[in-house]
Design a protein around this nucleic acid. Sequence first.
DNA 1: TTGTAAGCGTTATCAA
DNA 2: TTGATAACGCTTACAA
Lengths: 353, 353
Amino acid sequence: MVTLRDVARAAGVSPATASRALAAPDMVAADRRSRVLRAARDLGYRPNRAARELSTGRTGMLCLVVPDLANPFFAAVAKAVHARARASGYAVLVGDSDEDLRTEAELVTQLAERGDGLILCSPRMSDADLRALDARAPVVLVNREADGLPAVVIDNADGTRQAVSHLHALGHRRIAYAGGPADSWSDVRRRNGLREAVAALGNVEVVDLGPFSRAFTGGTAAGDLVAASGATAVLAHNDLVALGILDRLQARGVHVPQDVSVVGYDDIPSATLVSPALTTVAVPLDRLGRAAVDLLLAQTAPGDSTDPGGGRAEAPGGAPVRVPVSLVVRASTDVAPAPRSAPTQTGPARTAR
Amino acid sequence: MVTLRDVARAAGVSPATASRALAAPDMVAADRRSRVLRAARDLGYRPNRAARELSTGRTGMLCLVVPDLANPFFAAVAKAVHARARASGYAVLVGDSDEDLRTEAELVTQLAERGDGLILCSPRMSDADLRALDARAPVVLVNREADGLPAVVIDNADGTRQAVSHLHALGHRRIAYAGGPADSWSDVRRRNGLREAVAALGNVEVVDLGPFSRAFTGGTAAGDLVAASGATAVLAHNDLVALGILDRLQARGVHVPQDVSVVGYDDIPSATLVSPALTTVAVPLDRLGRAAVDLLLAQTAPGDSTDPGGGRAEAPGGAPVRVPVSLVVRASTDVAPAPRSAPTQTGPARTAR
DNA sequence: TTGTAAGCGTTATCAA
DNA sequence: TTGATAACGCTTACAA
């Protein structure tokens, strides 16, 4: 193994100069610098990570913990985090908690001592535990808020607002909502947006179909209720539920969008793989991931001076970064509602595509 | 920060004894051991990773590089790798090459010096580059073979064999194949399986629809050719292509499976989100990932003695681990083929569901 | 600008 | 079984 001493010797300088020539080129005279650089190249010098870490206390790695890597939602965040981290010279240590609180707790404590900071995606941990963790290593929350911890969240309420507004514009006046689990942090917020939007509109009626599992099967169950609800449109907690509804409605001979319009949330890739393609509230997962990295690096950054008004990233403990969402209109809401009459009739659409 | 010296001092022993008490408990007297353990606990001692790494040369991390984390195929592998690595006390450094050769090359060299070994999933690098990398750090290939490097691959050919056999049993005698890119390592093997199966059966005819992009859109293009081919069944390179075919056929009024049966490959989650649900060759991604970790750890393992006939994992440089695949029959091949007549007719199915 | 030398926290070697 | 002590390879005061 080639060490810095070897390079220094070959270049005829001290190890300190060699170190500086590589890390802080401006601090060393041009001729010596080039000698060092060449020696390093010739010898195939690769700095020893562990030694550097031991000396500096920084690993150049950040940790990302998600509930499920195989979930397209979190996979997209992971991809974005990786890209942004890499662009800043960081490697990514990834943790999959398998949707389990205990696993999550173990994972974060293990990873905390391996990286320079943690990005926690939809963590289930308590606020207190999160704060305790933050004392060990800088933490950034994604899709979750806790006390004053830096966080980046989706503007959940605004998404439902947009969806309702879209449906209202199409003429829908009776809209069903197929919500997620009652204890879901995001569903509460999506419901709030729904309530506000409806209140603002005045002439819209909402049928709460009740909570459903956040999966395709949840949607299957919801589908039957939609058909019986007399609603001309349904807004689902997320795309998986919406896809389940779509499938169930079609199996029952209810045409989408002619008889019932369907709107999802998240815009997972599958939304475009079905017909009709799903209108949905697109969540910019890549922005979520990028913002999280920026927030973390802002805390971790060496130039951690007071920096008055300098950095563009949120100050630690500042207000959460709220990422905007946007409705993507596709075929599943392509037409105006049929006249409000029998719930499950399959009459001709008022407006054909 | 609490160091090992602090613990040693508190326990009234030397740092060396403290180190041993924690790492190799049997090497130290019971009384001292318990004193050290208690002191460590009381003081909240957390060993410094960097120092340990510097001293031992081992990081306790392994690196995983995939072409695309957001691809459900690779996401599943990543999840499995993570789970298996964690069970063995390893953390996972993840790299996403974004399907780009240059990025992949940079990534692997960067990661190689951070972990104890690399798992490369469907790498695009040349055999020579892979060998060169292996000289730096232990490498295990997934879904790729190169020289004598340890690898774990899918039994691609067998999957197509199973699919053809299934279709043949249903009565199909004219089968279309919508292949992937010509330079695809796996498509070549899937084609081989197809050829062999057809040769063995004797009375089956294959229509090669040509290469398609491995995406949904590739399937859309293939769909039209299927309809025109006069085939009663189509086998696609992968599920995405199959889904595209499904969508296109349905848009054209061709009923699946009554008019044409469709079979995919991979069994991505979306395969069950469409109707009819997709019959497909299921690839056990979790086994792929687990096997890869086992293979890597077998190389990395400290007890690297000759171990005659001991370990259950493949010897480095041994034959690639070949993971079996299995056909999952779903609705998209649920009926016997309609009588061979006009290519795109939408006549009634011979057998209803 | 450069060099010397003192760490960084562990593990491993070698006597005792 | 234990304890000094020397690595491990790099960074960084501090001096020159």
